[in-house]
């Protein structure tokens, strides 16, 4: 398995009370696959994704990504891991307001070892013509495309998306999903995506249902659907 999680546990301390958020999660994903995590609000999806991406640490258990045991490395090594292996796409885009579209992508290509060409990536997300615009001059969907370009430009082994379509309408969402699928095909990028939307799972190879910090269902989807055919 390219990505493998074994009995990952995490709890948050609020005052004297310790709330378990992840209660022994186990999951796996092969290289080049798309995985989708489904679950109600507060079930621990983001926490799980953050641990996989090296933004947060598990209390117990083991996370291995592309041969690296993420749970056993130092903070500095964790930064290097994020820098070299992981791309993030966030629900609220998090673009840098006073940099242009092109520059926002360049921010990441500046620090990666073998980045893709910026123009190529922008073209792939359909934002090449708007390269010199500033984020506030873009719509939400356009901003999300830039944020995907930014995550993809470093050619990451694993692309993590936390509700990438959460703030977008139906048509725009489908365009974004199409884009992700296209990137997965073109660059062979493994993708793990969180969503509230069950319909989206049709485009994934594997589907993980989370409830109360546990994987309650893990299915392999043999008939992956192209994103443009997804309806909800």
């Amino acid at each position: 398995m390219f990505m493998n999680l074994e009995s990952v546990q995490k709890s948050y301390q609020t005052g004297d009370v310790s709330t378990p958020v992840l209660k022994g999660v186990a999951m796996g994903l092969e290289q080049g696959e798309i995985g989708v995590i489904l679950g109600p609000s507060g079930s621990g999806k983001s926490t799980l994704l953050n641990i996989i991406g090296g933004l947060d640490r598990a209390d117990a258990g083991k996370v291995t990504i592309g041969g690296i045991e993420v749970t056993g490395i130092s903070d500095a090594q964790l930064t290097e891991y994020r820098r070299d292996c992981i791309g993030f796409v966030f629900q609220f885009y998090n673009l840098i307001p006073n940099l242009t579209v092109g520059e926002n992508v360049e921010v990441v290509s500046n620090i990666s070892k073998s980045p893709l060409k910026i123009d190529e990536v922008l073209k792939a997300v359909g934002m090449l013509e708007k390269k010199s615009r500033f984020p506030k001059e873009l719509s939400g969907g356009e901003q999300q495309r830039v944020s995907i370009a930014r995550a993809v430009v470093k050619n990451p082994q694993l692309l993590l998306c936390d509700e990438p379509t959460g703030a977008l309408d139906f048509n725009t969402s489908r365009d974004i999903l199409k884009l992700l699928q296209q990137i997965n095909k073109e660059y062979g990028t493994t993708i793990l995506m969180i969503t509230h939307n069950t319909a989206i799972s049709a485009m994934a190879n594997r589907i993980f249902k989370v409830r109360d910090g546990e994987i309650v269902e893990s299915t392999v989807n043999e008939s992956v659907m192209p994103a443009e055919r997804i309806e909800w």
Partner: peptide
């Protein structure tokens, strides 16, 4: 803060 967090998440080092 959000921007710094994003940079951090993308793999920017503290030093940078």
């Amino acid at each position: 803060a959000v921007m710094i967090g994003t940079l951090y998440a993308q793999g920017y080092r503290m030093r940078e």
